[in-house]
Design a protein around this nucleic acid. Structure first.
Lengths: 358, 358
DNA sequence: CCACGGATTGAGAACGTTCTCACTCAAGCG
DNA sequence: CGCTTGAGTGAGAACGTTCTCAATCCGTGG
């Protein structure tokens, strides 16, 4: 193995070319003015020595690292990996790179990561916050002068740009479609947050408004809206919040279908949960959609390929990421601008997993 | 919006604490020796000013950026996003961060990314090379003193550590299982590289050896080994290399099943391709496994949940990433070591998509 | 021939750390 | 008491760029 040899500096290039470091810098960096002769000499010298500029030193001077920090709860989740792709593409489009941190839905990790990225002097941050996001830490970063764009989830009290969908309207639409098919007993599989269930039952507006602050909450609110509009009283026991994993969803489904008045349709808030539903149905010997209809959020790549093909609420995930990246870079490069909240449209894709009630 | 204000430097902290920058640095950085009194004064001053060390300046001195560059062809591919998770976990374990670049299977992008990461002075690189990886660019990075670990794919002529599976043995095993079930006409769905097909037919050892250099090639070689051992002559028309997307796989499946002597079993080299197979079967009105058996590489999260549950060759994807990260950091932190090639074991998971030949 | 102006150049500062070195001071030892 | 020792400290160099500023060069117009 070769010894780690230090790369040639601009000074070495300058010496080799017989000019000053200032001139070498100008020739290599493309700023200022250099004579053709000097430029050629410098470029040739750089080529000969295998010179590579040190972007750390450059960043120290210019104050720009050309780096975007990205914080996601779980890179393995297809939603985030696709969004990340969008962010990265937006970054590369304009010559930025992406420093990625997985927060693992862990609040203390998220806070720690914000600190690390601050020390690295990233030019901006795209954050998909953990559900109980650290408001103060985020606001602190913003006040330190690092622009932030929030992806997918909002954090009340943080003055940052936001990119997401209208979760409440999307859930309402999906629920209405099930209602239109004649279903009257519709279960909601949320995955998260135990606290949702009692809130759903509470009639006051306050409860729902507070509910709508998180993504899951907003979707639950939309579900509730649709039911109430159809004159159906939401039943807390039809709302499950028993974990995000597939097995959790399978267990929840089994529980729901064991109720006295079991649901004839299920709305699952993400595609992994939908997998759990299908798995449970298969174990119980029930068919979809003949016995139970199913609509899920997110158009996973397998949604069209399985049987039955899954009817889904598709989010423009890639575009969400790309838009977040662009918004952030606009703020990094451009000047100030008022905080904007961008909502991208969802699309319902009708396949075969939701059918008229038997 | 607040104006982008520059963060306080160590000099500001030193002034506030009434000591020199050297002492402030020692107190904050935890090196050298500082009296308790000075330390307290400095830490209090730092707290008051909201001081955050500038890791760029630190890196300039120490020569370490505590950053690992990661190059993957497609972050959306579950294989790579899971592996990335492993790499990131290994990095964070030891206090490193991850700079991610998507190469999009594009050779010129890969080369460009290597350049950018070199300029950023990453301490090491995990590269999942594009199939036709740029040997010279990679070797150049290594010779510049940046350690590289190759993930999943090997690149002949590049002296780097490697982490992967024994592709040839895994494919051979899967094929043998189909043979054991009585199948005699087995199709191979590769996704990649048109050039494979003629090579398969060629009898000479040379052809196969060269074949085995890439991942797809090695698997094709394993498939060939198993057939030959069973006394079956490989038929080039049973090997498909018509693209990596699901639709490509569906089209290929339709073509294969339209042959005069159609396959009764299919080996798909990744899970996305398997989805295409299932989709095509459904369109053709054929059942799996009653009419056609299917085995796929990679245990996708939906593999167990669909019907029929998919029998797969599971790779320890997360562990591959983690091992790659650790190997790289060992080399970054430790001294020299001979180049090592690590092969992690695969596991065959028998479910219901492969059944005895009708 | 001289003044002028723009292009070209180089010396040295600046960025914010860590590192090197020399200095002070007090304690310990003979 | 003088000498050694070691902890604590600060001045200033170093890292590799870009930036600032003044100096020089060269051709042009008067």
């Amino acid at each position: 193995m070769s010894v780690r040899r230090s790369m040639p500096s601009i000074e070495a290039v300058a010496r080799e070319a017989g000019v000053s470091t200032a001139t070498a810098g100008r020739a290599l960096g493309g700023y200022g003015s250099v004579s053709g002769k000097s430029r050629e000499a410098v470029l040739a010298a750089a080529e000969r020595l295998g010179y590579r500029p040190n972007s750390l030193a450059r960043s120290m001077i210019t104050g720009l690292t050309h780096t975007l920090g990205v914080l996601v709860p779980d890179i393995e989740n297809p939603f985030f990996s696709r969004a990340l792709r969008g962010i990265a593409d937006a970054a590369h489009e304009r010559g930025w790179e992406v420093l990625l941190v997985n927060t693992d839905e862990d609040l203390s990790l998220e806070r720690k990561a914000l600190g690390v990225l601050t020390e690295r002097r990233v030019d901006g941050l795209v954050v998909a916050p953990t559900d109980a996001a650290d408001r103060d830490a985020l606001q602190g970063v913003i006040e330190a002068g690092i622009p932030v764009v929030l992806l997918d989830r909002r954090v009340p009290g943080v003055e940052a740009d936001t990119v997401g969908i209208d979760n409440r309207a999307a859930a309402r639409d999906a629920t209405e479609r099930l209602l239109a098919l004649g279903h009257r007993t519709i279960a909601l599989l949320t995955g998260g947050d135990e606290k949702l269930r009692p809130k759903l039952a509470r009639p006051g507006l306050r409860g729902v408004e507070r509910l709508a602050a998180t993504t899951v909450g907003a979707r639950a609110a939309g579900y509730r809206d649709a039911l109430l509009d159809a004159g159906i009283e939401p039943r807390p026991e039809l709302v499950s919040a028993e974990g995000f994993r597939r097995e959790d969803a399978a267990a929840a489904t089994t529980r729901l279908l064991g109720l006295d008045d079991p649901p004839t349709a299920i709305l699952a808030l993400d595609s992994l949960l939908a997998l759990g539903v299908l798995q449970a149905l298969r174990r119980l010997g029930l068919r979809c959609p003949a016995d139970v209809s199913l609509i899920a959020f997110d158009d996973a790549d397998w949604a069209e390929a399985i049987s039955p093909p899954l009817s889904v609420v598709a989010q423009p995930v890639y575009e969400l990421g790309k838009e977040a990246g662009r918004l952030l870079l606009d703020r990094v490069q451009g000047g100030d601008r008022r905080v904007t909240h961008r909502r991208l449209p969802t699309r319902f894709i009708e396949r075969e997993s939701a059918a008229p009630r038997a």
